[in-house]
Every structure is written in structure tokens, then in C-alpha cells.
């Protein structure tokens, strides 16, 4: 066991967990932040994607210890951050995913949305090809991706206005 000092969604937390645990395990099973999903546990599917200092990172391949000192954003962090900035409802990306049919089973979506978030932070007006590239590490088995692309394009448009 070891105590990890983590900054998660703006909170500073201390949490004890086995030393070899991944960030995903600590988030899900110690902090109760179950929005990040485990689909493969070996970095293939992207369902565990979180942002570390704004960069999409596979939490299942990242030791919890290596996330210390970095700002961790999980899917649970988006709505409160949006509200803190005076926004209403959900984050525009989350809202666009909901409107556009991008959420079927929803299991890949927390990772998908965070990859999209990082993209839009870097590139507010991405082309379809840029969206495809940004999501290449996030597998979705339900949608065929089309409505996900549409959701991101819709959110980008809305956020620019």
C-alpha cells in the first residue's frame, strides 16, 4: 500500500492503494469515479481515457504514482467545470453527444468525449479528418462513429459561437 497524492477534477485527494495499481484502478475502485471505463486493460480500446494536464492519457496503462503532480480530468469533471464557468446544463460536448445519437451503449463515450475535449481545446475548428485522427485510440462498437463525428462538429460550432 502507498498513499497517492492526486489532483482530480480540481480536488486534491490523498488515497491509499496498492503501489502497483494503475490510475484507472485508483479512480474507479478507490475514488468511486467510475465514469472512466475498463474495456481491455491493456491500452487497446481507449475507454479509460482521462486528461493529464490536458493530454488524453490511457489510465489503464498509467501507474497511479506517475499521475502525481499532474492535473487529472475525468469525465465527471466536465460538468462541474462547465458550471463553474457559469454554464448551464452539461458541457457542450456532452450535450452534443446526447443530441446527436452518439451515445448508444455509452461505454466508450467518457473516453471518447475526453479525447474530443482535448482536440477542441487545441483546435477549435477541426476538419473531419482531424476528428478521425484524434479519436483513433478510442474504439466504439455501436455507432460506426458517424454520429460521434457529427456530435463533435456540432459542439465545435456551438463553442465557437
Amino acid at each position: 500500500m502507498r498513499v497517492f497524492h492526486l489532483q482530480v477534477n480540481g480536488d486534491t485527494v490523498e488515497v491509499a492503494a496498492p503501489e502497483h495499481w494503475t490510475l484507472l484502478e485508483v479512480l474507479r475502485y478507490k475514488l468511486g469515479l467510475t465514469g472512466s471505463k475498463q474495456g481491455c486493460d491493456k491500452g487497446d480500446c481507449g475507454a479509460c481515457t482521462v486528461l493529464l494536464d490536458g493530454t488524453p492519457t490511457l489510465a489503464c496503462l498509467c501507474l497511479a504514482a506517475s499521475a502525481e503532480g499532474k492535473a487529472i480530468t475525468t469525465i465527471e469533471g466536465l460538468l462541474p467545470a462547465h458550471r463553474a464557468q457559469g454554464g448551464k446544463g452539461a458541457d457542450p460536448l456532452q450535450d452534443a453527444f446526447d443530441r446527436s445519437g452518439a451515445l448508444q451503449c455509452g461505454f466508450c463515450q467518457p473516453g471518447m468525449i475526453l479525447s474530443a475535449k482535448a482536440l477542441l481545446n487545441q483546435n477549435p475548428n477541426p476538419s473531419l479528418q482531424e476528428i478521425r485522427q484524434a479519436l483513433a485510440g478510442n474504439l466504439c462498437r455501436c455507432t460506426g462513429y458517424t454520429q460521434i463525428f457529427e456530435a463533435i462538429q456540432a459542439a465545435a460550432k456551438e463553442m465557437q459561437n
Binding site: 467510475t34 465514469g35 472512466s36 469525465i75 456532452q94 450535450d95 446526447d98 455509452g106 463515450q109 468525449i113
Partner: peptide
């Protein structure tokens, strides 16, 4: 969808 936002925000509870 009735559960869309819950899935988008990570609120939705799956078995694991």
C-alpha cells in the same frame, strides 16, 4: 434518449 446525459457525464452505472 432517456439516459443519454447520464452516459455522457459518467453517471450511468454499469455492472463493474
Amino acid at each position: 434518449k432517456v439516459d443519454g446525459l447520464a452516459k455522457a457525464t459518467g453517471e450511468a452505472i454499469y455492472t463493474d
